[in-house]
Nucleic acid binder design. Sequence first.
DNA 1: AGCTCGTCTGAAAGCGGTTTCAGAGAACAG
DNA 2: CTGTTCTCTGAAACCGCTTTCAGACGAGCT
Lengths: 337, 337
Amino acid sequence: MQNRPGRSPRVTISDVSTAAMVSAATVSRVLNGTARVDPTLVSRVHDAVRDLGYRPNAAAQGLARGEWGTIGVLVPDLANPYFPEVLKAVSAVARAHGRRMMVMESDEDPALEFELVEDLMRCCDGVLLASPRMPRAELVELLGRDHPMVLFNRVVAGAGVPSISVDFTGGMTQVCGHLAQLGHRRAAYLSGPSASWGNDERVRAFEAARAFGLEVTVVECGGSTSQAGYDAVAAVLESDATAVLAYNDLVALGAIARLRELSVGVPEELSVIGFDDISLERVAHSNLTTVSVPRDELGRRAGEILEQLLVNDSDTEPVYLPMVLQVRDTSGPPAVP
Amino acid sequence: MQNRPGRSPRVTISDVSTAAMVSAATVSRVLNGTARVDPTLVSRVHDAVRDLGYRPNAAAQGLARGEWGTIGVLVPDLANPYFPEVLKAVSAVARAHGRRMMVMESDEDPALEFELVEDLMRCCDGVLLASPRMPRAELVELLGRDHPMVLFNRVVAGAGVPSISVDFTGGMTQVCGHLAQLGHRRAAYLSGPSASWGNDERVRAFEAARAFGLEVTVVECGGSTSQAGYDAVAAVLESDATAVLAYNDLVALGAIARLRELSVGVPEELSVIGFDDISLERVAHSNLTTVSVPRDELGRRAGEILEQLLVNDSDTEPVYLPMVLQVRDTSGPPAVP
DNA sequence: AGCTCGTCTGAAAGCGGTTTCAGAGAACAG
DNA sequence: CTGTTCTCTGAAACCGCTTTCAGACGAGCT
């Protein structure tokens, strides 16, 4: 940093101490307020700092303090509108506690994920794992590393790891209940990434749904993007489903786009229900029936749990946040044949 | 990091060197491949690393190497769908060059922005300033810090700073041309954040528009969110505008939502045109007429310019990326009175 | 005045790596 | 067999900051 050819040399604490005619220790004390210092020296230090434009080197501080002042967040896909809002909240919490936020994206690749987490652990005080896709075994191995970490939208039973998740099963159960009430009997579920915990949690709701008299068939769609939803429509139309449940809103929107192209009426001929409610808040007044989750609270709480973990090593019970059904325009009674 | 009470102590390079019966220097050489080392020692080192689960401390490496291996990105609003895609691309480029990405959000607050950039400079090899809102003077002061930095969507004349931007003026000119061609004569522009460079660039197009016979009135809306657009509709309806140009898509969508509530037909009674084309790619097949920008290329190029800057201090000419008009469903001929 | 105690300061020892530097051997030539 | 050169290794310095530790100094007490 300081010796880049052609760049002016970085000013260090000893430059300041020289200019202020005090020791480096004193400069440090003044800047961090860790001990009383004679007011005369204090102002000499401040003057020198200002004159020289001194900024402490974060790496050196981290090394000396044994703390990076940084938290790391790993998300599967930055471009998925779900995460930025979460990041926003996490970032705010981190900042409130004087920490920076490092962000990495795994591109939904479980193998890469492992590697990235390892890297995050090398440069962050704690890491937040958002919707990890990696196999349980790897996850457990990472947890064993004994590094502050909180899981987001994934619970690992028995591992005693702090985690925060949305009650996906509960949310999907509400969706099923809604459809059953409208009179639907058969629905198709456009599944998300395979081996995704969140997907499994959603699917769990379909058992209970049978009790409502709703039979849900899983259509492998295997993605969390609108493209995946768009492509999966064909399979749905071959079935006798009168409603489509999507892994998330993007998938649902993709499906709707395709249905519109095919002139299939939504919801007259086919109801489509999303999941996550990504569009509502930002792109005001979306009309997709979906279940919402307070992403901002989710991020905030996640950040707080991590912070808690960093300060006093107390581990917390897994936190579950409820989802809320948002009935809008894309769901209705089944078409009468 | 290593001495957190209750946590297992961090394993350091000297633990490895002891276990492998070599010097720390050799361990470093093996791990970084900076010099030939006897194959016997190499394998001893690798064994020790594996057995101990050694991971080099990033802060120590940063300090010793004089490089953090990190780039910083400052965005005004993470939740604005514009940025995640850019971040995604930047992150990919950074990773390809072995760097991590730090993200900060200024919440559209120019004052905070300055502070955050300073902080980023303390812990990143280079920083990418996305759409900085801060006053020119402050920006110049930061640029003077002689720290690798690239400006994104803002050009500071004469400062010789590498920058990459979208040709906002060109994009807006296309929009005006489109409207003029449809027969519009008077339009209202829902302005973005005041003191925003991007906003000024858009407004510049309105002069040229007069040549097309289109008179554009600026309506202070002062935000970049859908809420701002929603709220600004009232002012527009009081004018004689037959078309609305928005600072960005969010604003446009907010306006459309409000217009729908008020039962004003779009585009029959009022054309609405967005800017940025945020909705297209992710939330497939949006129907907003807008101008698009290859956000992903934007992010990628930005990352590359920064990397370039870090490697060999060569500064580049400002880069401008063109926008493309996307005519969709929300624009049409003006209503005949 | 002499002592103890408390407060403030600077020197120095880390933090965990990388890199320079010099020395030990091995290889080779004369 | 000796003298050079070359290759590889470890000791030590260093990166920039924090924190311990011990010492200097002044105040308060007997």
